[in-house]
């Protein structure tokens, strides 16, 4: 399938004019990031605070500038490209609204900008999220502001929709509502969604493909399913766990007396699992959240080249 969006060796370096004089090096926000985004797929862009997720999304939509590398949006440069950008909706947690705008104003303005805007859908979402249409956006609570962004992102029905931390402050009911409406509308109107979030467990059933950023580097670019199969925790006697761990890459270990619980990366086929079980070792899948935590806190430096983890995992 043709990619709708692609990043080629994108780097972003901030050079502070004063700090560079006193010898502090430039800070690297993105380091040689390369990937492609396929049409009609839901992506999870994961990573810790400051990993570069927002900067990457801004560069993908031509709102920020890469220090080197390039971005292709529908095969073109996104910078100042109205024709391409009209099909993209980027809702970020820090989206600003003019002070005089009410909720209704914001929705009317958004309706003007997105060619596929569905106003009935927007109104039904306003009711679902119980937003007061006449209230000024500046007077909304954090969660309500997030809901407004979510409504714009969903009702825009853009061919590519980027959500950057879309639901900070939104309660569990609101978040569930977002997942439900997103999935339902995605089924009727397939499109590409890129979702950056910290609530990984909540979205793990939603996202089909994982992009994991760690300190500006893309360390995972893999389908969620294959990623899950390639990481397990094994629990059992220390000596047995040691034997199994030796054949794999160990990311983390908890010790409980003579019992060890290790998170391992590698290939675990049915035979291997059966052998482990025979030795009294329990093999369990790792949740996506655990996987991200283990990969981004691993003691050794993260793999440099893009897709390295992916390759290692599929060995």
């Amino acid at each position: 399938m043709n990619p709708v969006l692609a990043a080629h060796h994108v780097s972003k370096v901030y050079r502070h004019p004063v700090r560079s004089v006193i010898g502090r090096g430039p800070s690297v926000a993105l380091d040689d990031v390369t990937f492609t985004i396929a049409d009609q797929t839901i992506y999870g862009l994961l990573g810790r605070n400051g990993a570069g997720k927002t900067t990457l999304m801004q560069i993908l939509t031509g709102q920020n500038f890469a220090s080197s590398g390039r971005v292709e949006l529908f095969g073109q440069s996104p910078y100042e490209n109205d024709a391409a950008l009209a099909n993209v909706c980027f809702v970020k947690e820090s989206q600003r609204y003019p002070d005089v705008f009410t909720v209704a104003n914001a929705l009317r303005a958004a309706a003007l900008l997105f060619p596929e805007w569905d106003n009935d859908f927007a109104l039904s979402l306003v009711e679902d999220f119980q937003l007061p249409p006449r209230r000024r956006v500046s007077k909304l609570s954090r969660g309500m502001r997030s809901a407004l962004g979510v409504i714009i992102g969903l009702a825009a029905r853009s061919r590519i929709t980027l959500f950057d931390e879309p639901y900070l402050g939104l309660d569990a009911v609101g978040r569930q509502l977002f997942y439900d409406r997103l999935l339902r509308d995605y089924a009727d109107h397939p499109r590409t969604v890129i979702l950056s979030t910290h609530l990984i467990d909540e979205v793990s059933a939603l996202i089909e493909h994982v992009l994991l950023l760690d300190r500006g580097r893309l360390i995972v670019d893999a389908e969620t399913e294959s990623l899950r199969e390639q990481m397990v925790t094994v629990t059992g006697p220390v000596s047995t766990v040691d034997t199994i761990a030796a054949a794999h890459h160990e990311l983390h270990r908890d010790l409980l007396g003579s019992t060890a619980r290790a998170t391992l990366r590698g290939d675990f086929d049915a035979a291997g699992r059966a052998r482990a079980a025979a030795h009294g070792v329990q093999v369990e899948p790792v949740s996506l959240q655990q996987l991200v935590v283990r990969l981004t806190t691993a003691a050794e430096p993260a793999p440099v080249s893009v897709g390295a983890v992916d390759k290692e995992l599929s060995r």
Partner: peptide
């Protein structure tokens, strides 16, 4: 910030 944040070009 509002309009360009929603992908209107600067021009």
């Amino acid at each position: 910030s509002f309009a360009v944040g929603l992908n209107v070009t600067r021009r």
